[in-house]
């Protein structure tokens, strides 16, 4: 046998390749976030964050848009989480391996790969027009919920499936019913994984412009009810940039959005970590 590259050399080469791809990924991330913050942070101050927009956002603040983002994202998560987690429990604990299960899983995977603008179009046809919700927080939030649903479902399902079967056996052997076992043992144990899914879904929803473009309107005021029109940050950013209103404020909006997502991720990761440590005693 004649080797072209000796094993020790190929080992070194591959170590280098993996090391480099890891480094490159982090570098790309840092460059993008750094660039956004560098361009955006100069406009960001308390007045920008807490103020109302002036002249369609050419100047002034973005507070209504921050609130819009929070509202539509919260609504999306509140709707998609019980649905997604419920479906995940059904798939992993009750369904077995029938045709219906395959269909649900296929549906969920397809849903995950549909472009967000198509969700927007569907939201316009179904929520805005057919159900008569109009351009509103409700229409936008529900559209975003549809987008977040497959993410939450599949992360929850993986997490529930990965829970050691011996926990459930121990619970059943003590005379617990299946449902008691699920909600007292399986779900608490799967909670870190489920939370990760919810955060991913939330991240998808909060960052979305296309899906809310046709569904939420473009209001400049803080929405005060579910039926009010709104303007989440990504949509505001899109409008500022495409209509050439103010590139500085567009970057500022982007910076605020990135910071919001960073804060949400860090806070929830810390909470999940603390929960996991308490649960596992480490």
């Amino acid at each position: 046998m004649h080797r072209i590259i000796p094993p020790k050399i190929s080992q070194k080469i591959m170590t280098g390749v993996f090391w480099a791809s890891g480094l490159l990924t982090i570098a790309i991330l840092l460059v993008i976030i750094g660039y956004v913050l560098l361009k955006g942070l100069p406009v960001v101050n308390l007045e920008f964050i807490l103020g109302d927009p002036i002249d369609s956002g050419r100047s002034g603040g973005i507070f209504p848009f921050i609130m819009s983002s929070i509202y539509v994202t919260l609504l999306a998560v509140l709707v998609a989480t019980p649905l997604g987690v419920g479906a995940a429990i059904y798939l992993s604990e009750y369904a077995g391996e029938g045709k219906l299960v395959k269909l649900i899983r296929f549906g969920s995977e397809t849903l995950a790969s549909i472009p967000s603008i198509v969700f927007g179009l569907f939201g316009l046809a179904f929520f805005v027009i057919y159900l008569g919700f109009g351009w509103s927080v409700l229409s936008g939030g529900l559209t975003l919920a549809l987008m977040a649903l497959p993410t939450i479902l599949s992360a929850s399902e993986v997490s529930i499936e990965s829970i050691n079967k011996s926990y459930a056996e121990g619970s059943l052997a003590l005379g617990a019913t299946k449902w008691q076992t699920i909600y007292r043992v399986v779900i608490p144990a799967a909670l870190p994984g489920i939370s990760t899914g919810v955060i991913l879904g939330m991240g998808r929803a909060i960052a979305e412009a296309a899906a809310v473009l046709y569904t939420v309107g473009a209001a400049l005021m803080i929405p005060t009810s579910l039926m009010d029109a709104a303007r989440p940050l990504p949509l505001h950013l899109y409008i500022l940039a495409t209509e050439g209103l103010s590139m500085d404020n567009a970057w500022g909006t982007a910076a605020v959005l990135v910071l919001m997502i960073l804060i949400i991720t860090v806070v929830t990761n810390t909470l999940v970590d603390r929960y996991r440590k308490k649960m596992m005693g480490r």
Partner: peptide, 9 residues
């Protein structure tokens, strides 16, 4: 059971 299986509680 064979393997100790306390709940993560």
């Amino acid at each position: 059971f064979q393997k100790p299986n306390p709940f993560p509680k």
